[in-house]
Design a protein around this nucleic acid. Structure first.
Lengths: 218, 218
DNA sequence: CTCACAATCTTGACATCGTCAATGATCCAT
DNA sequence: ATGGATCATTGACGATGTCAAGATTGTGAG
């Protein structure tokens, strides 16, 4: 019986919750993601997160200044996973620069469809504070994936080449528009025109956004 | 003195609020739009709308089943104005089919920037009920603007031509992506690459989305 | 080892929100 | 004019985010 404490500490969810949770901060982030996925941004509640994590309604205050701070942190981890999803899809696409750019775009869309509420939090909510340093850097990393992809395709660094940066804007807008409209359920008509392979259609649309250029130049 | 009633009825805001508002339904829609514009979707409150309209907190219930019903109706009038904005811009663009398609896209972006919260309500919120007949038809009309524009450019009806419908999807995604990213404040980098004419850049990006075709076909 | 302090969590309270039921005021057809 | 229908108000309820105060536990200095 002397091992009661250590047994509780090891279990992911202790049988009887100890007064101190142990890792409430991480548990709240997981709970917040689940809450967001189930109830959506409009039904998200901080008390619901607390209940999910098995703590009282005011416990989160000790780890996050307020509900928006929790959502800010969640958006930051969302962007980190977002970058990973894009890079993974991009690397699966091989070495052809155009295929890799399209791959990043498909990863963009994939992530949005797999994490609709989280994606909306990251892009269409004013609740997360984008001045928070952690979120700001993670979001910048996501932008860098597109910049690098276009740079590889165009053979120049978009950060110094205006024409290439316009391609970044074009590719981003296209991928983002597809993702957001898919989440809004406004792209159902695509089923009838995609020959059962919607991804091929997304890929085609993304590819158009950065046309081949025989001559570079601003 | 017999004209007291008519004088009150004509004033936009009667001096001393009569017990019966007169046109509370319309007043609530205007109030809701103002509330949305000021506080955004996340700070929108029904009681705030009621206060704006100068009535008690429970008065809206007599005109809208609940807060979502009010937002549903607001989204519907939003789509009507959205269609008008696109058509106006399109007609200003002249007769060239490509310029007209780009015009519709610029109207899309214009509307989003002029009515950010309303646009988000229309596209990125689950609070309006898109099964409501009024909203459904208005949203369908908006879709029709793009379908017609692409149809005129391609010379076929996208409703029966799969290739043309793919162009609709492409143009829509591009315009929508630009609009949504602009609202999210993620396109600030475009200032540096647009030579002071961001609209020209938007137009270029939209135009890319539906490339010229020498050969039609599926 | 112990004990005081810091960190963590709970409880209780408050204002505000959406919604409902009951009541009050006004309009209009008869 | 009058009584029913319409429109608005008041008051209440449960739920929410946040704050203040108290309870519990971890920890380091002595």
């Amino acid at each position: 019986m002397g091992d009661r404490k250590s047994a509780e500490a090891k279990a992911d969810r202790p049988r009887k919750a100890p007064y101190h949770h142990g890792d409430l901060r991480e548990a709240l982030l997981r709970a917040a993601e689940a809450e967001l996925a189930e109830k959506g941004m409009e039904g998200f509640t901080l008390r619901g997160c607390a209940k999910r994590a098995g703590v009282s309604h005011a416990a989160p205050a000790h780890h996050f200044k307020d509900a928006n701070a929790l959502l800010t942190e969640l958006a930051a981890v969302g962007f980190a996973r977002f970058v990973a999803a894009m890079r993974a899809r991009q690397n699966r696409a091989g070495t052809d620069p155009r295929k890799r750019l399209v791959g990043a775009g498909l990863g963009y869309i994939d992530f949005a469809r797999a994490n609709p509420a989280l994606f909306r939090l990251m892009f269409s909510s004013f609740r997360p504070d984008f001045e928070t340093i952690n979120l700001k850097t993670e979001a910048t990393d996501a932008f860098a994936v597109l910049v690098d992809s276009v740079g590889a395709l165009r053979g120049v660094d978009p950060r110094t080449d205006r024409s290439a940066m316009r391609d970044v804007a074009s590719a981003w807008a296209t991928a983002h528009g597809l993702a957001d409209l898919l989440l809004s359920d406004r792209m159902n008509f695509m089923d009838a025109i995609s020959d059962g392979h919607p991804e091929t259609l997304y890929a085609d649309i993304i590819s158009r956004s950065v046309p081949d250029r025989l001559l570079g130049g601003d």
